[in-house]
């Protein structure tokens, strides 16, 4: 199963094993990772699963949907060009090693 890396604002990082076609958010919450709240449970309605995608990986992710785009305008931490909602990133084998940076805050 592919593994992904979450980088915390303080520089620490967590490597997390994903399981069958789950989202980056689901993998993070299943492992109790601090820094992803996911208040809406992955329904693309809350913007509390915000991540910054490492530039090297950005082009390999599926395109941003309209709902996601609108929600990203309301994230608690600044929206950057590499901002995504982790509940909308389904981890496929080609994303093994993906690097996601966590924002300072989710609410």
């Amino acid at each position: 199963m592919p593994a992904i890396n979450f980088m915390h604002p303080d520089g620490k990082s967590d490597r997390i094993e994903t399981s069958d076609s789950e989202s980056a958010m689901q993998a993070a919450t299943r492992h109790g990772l601090d820094g992803i709240l996911a208040e809406c449970g992955g329904n693309a309605m809350c913007a509390t699963c915000h991540v910054y995608v490492d530039e090297d990986w950005l082009g390999r992710l599926p395109a941003i949907g309209d709902d996601e785009d609108a929600l990203l305008d309301g994230t608690a931490a600044e929206r950057l060009p590499n901002s995504r909602l982790s509940c909308q990133i389904v981890i496929t084998p080609d994303l093994d090693g993906l690097v996601l940076r966590l924002p300072e805050r989710q609410v």
């Binding site: 309605m45 809350c46 913007a47 709902d67 609108a70 929600l71 305008d73 309301g74 994230t75």
Partner: peptide
């Protein structure tokens, strides 16, 4: 309604 009650509006 999602637009009217969005995170941006909450701010």
């Amino acid at each position: 309604l999602s637009k009217v009650l969005s995170p941006t509006v909450m701010k």
